[in-house]
Write a protein that binds this DNA or RNA. Structure first.
Lengths: 209, 209
DNA sequence: AGCCTTTCGCTACGGGTCGTAGCGTAATGG
DNA sequence: CCATTACGCTACGACCCGTAGCGAAAGGCT
């Protein structure tokens, strides 16, 4: 949750966990009000009722702070077993789309990804706290589909990994592109087409080995 | 190319077209060296050998300038007829991926999209100068596939439009997500799987009507 | 040629943000 | 009680923003 780990000593005054929570919540509020580019560290500190120096003791810069503030929202993503691969896909896509509709994530997600193209530590932080959390849903969904017999058992683990990567990039990428670039609604009709495309094409993609 | 149109009078000193070109080229160079977030208007002006006020006469802010500077790179995208839908898809995907590999577009594209979530004029500018230019490739590709008989003739124009939108978001979104979020290479093996998934699933998606 | 209009380069400015340093104080553990 | 660390506060130089004002340059028009 916090960026810079405090000295691993057991002496001294401990860091305020209330301040941690207040800062992250203030960051989300500032994202809603100002958007990513207009968000300032000073404003976040004021909203959180905290000194600016307290922010810099925990996070080195705005990007890392925003990633942590937004990452917790991705905990909402769940993958209940709805009985079929297509139903599972449609459910998780609608969840993800709802997350992208929130103004905090809408303005923050693409911005930190853009920053991460020139910042390897930030990229790693995004991966561990956001991307991997989404990807687990793909792995679970495929495993369930295999158990149901909807997908053929894996012949080669390398192929399976490649297919998981593909599904993840297609689903997440399509939803993000639809919501933010095309700026059109991710409604049930669109989701139905996307999942039909996926379920119908997975066999062909898997056949490549 | 230029943002604010000069007064439509034929009197007075005309704007320097050399300055236009120098500014846009300097913007791309600055994107490569500094990245989007560290790019400053003053630096661009210095690189272009132009006064800062000259920039502001043409572009209201950094975002609009960057969009114009990057948009011309998308002119490189072409769709030669390779004989099959899958070959056409693979070719355009590899082209788009090569474009996303360039440091200018890598750092700029996601940043301006993020900004556009809170800036309707910017969103419209991105649409007309970048997104629509990509989308035309999808329309051409589908039309050719229909002429070849690879796709069934359209029963309903509304369905066709929806399918074009879906293909566009899936292809462009998947490539962007693969290149920038997953940060893994868009190599021929991955492209082959993506296009196989698309070609194999299009029928199922079209069947939804 | 002379005039008008617009752009150009240049300088300077107030306003805002950044990230840090320094200080005294508060909160723990030994 | 003491060492250690975190906290709030203030102040600071550095940087960037976007604009105003100026004289000079470069065109069209009569």
């Amino acid at each position: 949750m916090c960026s810079t780990t405090p000295r691993n000593t057991r002496t001294g005054r401990p860091r305020s966990t209330e301040a941690d929570a207040a800062i992250l919540e203030a960051t989300r509020a500032a994202l809603v009000d100002m958007g990513w580019s207009k968000l300032t560290m000073g404003d976040v500190a004021t909203r959180a009722g905290v000194a600016k120096t307290t922010l810099y003791r925990r996070w080195a810069n705005k990007n890392e702070l925003v990633v942590d503030a937004v990452a917790v929202l991705f905990d909402e993503l769940e993958l209940p077993d709805l009985g079929s691969l297509q139903a599972d896909i449609e459910h998780v896509v609608l969840q993800f789309a709802a997350l992208l509709e929130r103004p905090e994530t809408k303005t923050a997600l693409m911005a930190v990804v853009a920053e991460s193209t020139r910042d390897a530590p930030l990229r790693e932080r995004i991966r561990t706290s956001i991307v991997d959390r989404q990807k687990r849903l793909v792995l679970d969904g495929r495993r369930r589909a295999q158990e149901r017999g909807e997908l053929s058992a894996d012949p080669d683990p390398v192929t399976v990994d490649a297919l998981d990567d593909l599904i993840f990039d297609v689903v997440a990428g399509a939803v993000v592109h639809r919501a933010l670039v095309s700026a059109e609604p991710v409604d049930t009709a669109w989701v139905a087409r996307l999942s039909a495309l996926l379920v119908g094409g997975l066999g062909a993609a898997a056949a490549l080995g």
